[in-house]
Amino acid sequence: MANTELTELERDVANMIIEALELEDITADDIEPDAPLFGDGLGLDSIDALELGLALQKRYGIRLDSDAEENREHFASLRQLSALVAERRSD
């Protein structure tokens, strides 16, 4: 069922997550935009965080400092990650 809450950018970022992390049986519409990506939400782990950092670099030209405190906020949800992409993309 289509998730009408997703913007075009959120859908694009959701597809990047699915592709980069090889998530099985999940479509962009299955990712709740405000649900946590890590832990209880989508259930991603620390290696996924590194993989997402790489995917952001490849797809949107965004380089994150691996020690930055704000990374936790950027990776909190699909919506937060999409906001980061909207603000800093250089592709």
């Binding site: 090889e22 290696i47 590194l50 993989e51």
Partner: peptide, 9 residues
């Protein structure tokens, strides 16, 4: 190119 952390692991 950078390595995939998951694949490296």
């Amino acid at each position: 190119e950078p390595l995939s952390p998951a694949r490296f692991g």
